[in-house]
């Protein structure tokens, strides 16, 4: 990708998106290197406070990637996560950050191409917004 290197955290369900990322890697598919993957047992484990703390630490975007609706390993974890993502978007708006800096995606373990598409879409979206104004130490990839 062009522009400033970004720091996007992807909370991925181990039953779908995490495996899809693995498959994308196995297939040597290329996707933007701006994303850090955090493995979750289910996106139902997505925690509002953890996401807010990530933004407070200066990440530029957060994506949650869970199973397709109806296919959650824990029945409804992905649907609960979507409602939580909606709440986080509202909180970001109150705080003064763009709500679009957090987004929910759904895919199966076999959908490597969709994982690449989601990461690319998120990276392009955040690139348009620019790095988070809360970045510590200005531009650059935090944590490296």
């Amino acid at each position: 990708m062009t522009g400033t290197p970004l720091n996007i955290v992807a909370f991925c369900c181990e039953h779908c998106a995490y495996a899809a990322a693995d498959l994308a890697g196995g297939l040597r598919m290329q996707y933007p290197p701006d994303v850090r993957i955090v493995q979750l047992p289910c996106t139902g484990r997505l925690d509002v406070l953890t996401v807010l703390q990530a933004f407070d630490e200066g990440v530029d975007g957060v994506m949650a990637a869970g199973c397709l609706p109806g296919n959650c390993h824990f029945l409804e974890g992905n649907l609960n996560a979507r409602r939580r993502v909606t709440r986080i978007q509202g909180l970001l708006g109150e705080i003064g950050l763009e709500p679009g800096r957090v987004e929910m995606f759904n895919m199966s373990a076999a959908m490597a191409a969709e994982f690449v598409t989601a990461v690319t879409e998120m990276t392009e979206r955040i690139n348009e917004m620019g790095p988070s104004p809360l970045r510590v130490g200005g531009a650059g990839r935090g944590g490296d």
């Binding site: 509002v48 406070l49 807010l52 933004f55 407070d56 705080i95 003064g96 950050l97 809360l134």
Partner: peptide, 16 residues
């Protein structure tokens, strides 16, 4: 938990 959420939110909002 809600106290922690408010602290983080206020911290970000006041920094911005």
């Amino acid at each position: 938990r809600e106290a922690a959420e408010l602290v983080v939110s206020l911290r970000m909002a006041t920094r911005l």
